[in-house]
Amino acid sequence: MIFELNGKNVSFEAIPSLTLLDLLRNEFGLTSVKKGCDQGECGACTVLLDGMPVNSCLILSPQVEGKRVTTIDGLSENPLMIELRDAFMENGAVQCGFCTPGMLLSSYSLLRDNRNPTEEEVKMAIEGNICRCTGYVKIIEAVLDAAVRIGPD
């Protein structure tokens, strides 16, 4: 089976019961995708599937055939992600770091489609990403700050 992973076509042997999360971690060594609950509840395993944030633990690997999968690793040079990352670091939005890749991907997806989100829209975008360290205050501030940094189109 073939799919696009971080901009490159990759192939793997289809195992019906294998989740996308385990595929990415175990077969492709992408440990930036974290396993926090394996039940689709914590958001630590968030990846972009055809650009939309999904819990990779809820996707079975055969479902990604022919699709585009993006992890945080694939966006390290992306200008929007760089702004977002800098905003996270400067606003103190990073503590233990376990939720951070997923949180950044959900926030990235928001800002890509909406360059001027309200606080409510930020909360909505990251509602599925649990963070137990920050209380979300500085994460929300960081996303809003990133929106200011990137400015309108």
Binding site: M89, G97, F98
Partner: peptide
């Protein structure tokens, strides 16, 4: 900026299972 923040943002910070 905390010294560990960048690796955590890049997904390069290693936790036990990694």
């Amino acid at each position: 900026i905390r010294s560990d923040a960048l690796d955590k943002c890049l997904g390069k910070a290693n936790f036990t299972a990694d």
